[in-house]
């Protein structure tokens, strides 16, 4: 069987819908991973010992096991305990938590790197510890980690393909569905790859813009 790219236009609407889902899932999971990353970082650094240690263990498990396995756990695990979420919600939660752990690592390092004087000055000015963290330390730390978090978000885009395995109709599964009808895996997987690549390039472009902006204002 040779190659025939001319059948692509006929199925373009299905693929484009998949692209939209991939972008939506990536954005939602990215937001979750960012907020989650900040929360996790604060817990890992400042929570009482009894909370911090089990939490570290969970982080360690998340970093030591494959995302695909985690997605299976979250998707089927939630069903087991009676929470029947749509697959895409489970996918967003899975991707978001996974990358929150990686973001948390970055943010922890950045928080520790913010000068101690900042916290002391904020406390001297009458801010509580929580206020100082929220208004002085964390904003500076987050700014410093935006470039590496950008790398994580690009990784997240690519890993969003994994949620096809739990049945989310994003780009990869859309391609699979079309292939089921046309028996043309090569053409449609290449097409899907091309879309991922273009989204990836756009994200890299945005990341460079943001990086330049940050470095100018410093």
């Amino acid at each position: 069987m040779g190659l025939d790219f001319s059948i692509i236009p006929k199925y373009m609407d299905i693929i484009l819908l998949g692209v939209a889902w991939t972008i939506g899932i990536t954005v939602a999971a990215a937001l979750l991973s960012f907020v989650g990353g900040i929360i996790f970082a604060v817990i890992a650094l400042y929570a009482p010992w009894l909370i911090r240690q089990p939490f570290r263990l969970i982080e360690w498990v998340f970093m030591g096991t494959p995302l695909l396995l985690q997605l299976f756990l979250i998707y089927f695990g939630l069903v087991q305990i009676g929470i029947d979420l749509p697959a895409f919600v489970a996918g967003i939660i899975g991707l978001g938590l996974h990358f929150a752990v990686y973001n948390s690592e970055l943010i922890q390092t950045a928080i520790l790197a913010v000068d101690k004087g900042q916290m002391e000055a904020a406390r001297t000015l009458g801010l509580s510890r929580t206020q100082a963290l929220r208004k002085v330390v964390i904003p500076q730390a987050v700014r410093a980690v935006i470039p590496p978090i950008g790398n994580n978000m690009i990784a997240l885009l690519k890993d969003s393909a994994l949620v096809s395995v739990i049945g989310v109709s994003e780009l990869t599964l859309s391609a699979q569905r079309v292939i089921g009808k046309t028996y043309r895996p090569f053409e449609f997987y290449i097409l899907a790859a091309a879309f991922y690549y273009v989204i990836n390039l756009c994200m890299e472009w945005v990341q460079r813009k943001i990086e330049r902006r940050i470095s100018v204002s410093r």
């Binding site: 069987m1 040779g2 190659l3 690519k158 890993d159 969003s160 393909a161 994994l162 096809s164 990869t172 391609a175 699979q176 292939i179 043309r184 895996p185 090569f186 053409e187 997987y189 290449i190 899907a192 790859a193 991922y196 690549y197 990836n200 390039l201």
Partner: peptide
């Protein structure tokens, strides 16, 4: 750029499912 810019899963699928076509 290409291999880091696209999902590994898709690369696998191209090779495994699309390979026989070429």
């Amino acid at each position: 750029s290409v291999f880091r810019g696209t999902p590994a899963l898709i690369q696998l699928f191209i090779l495994y499912f699309g390979g026989p076509q070429i």
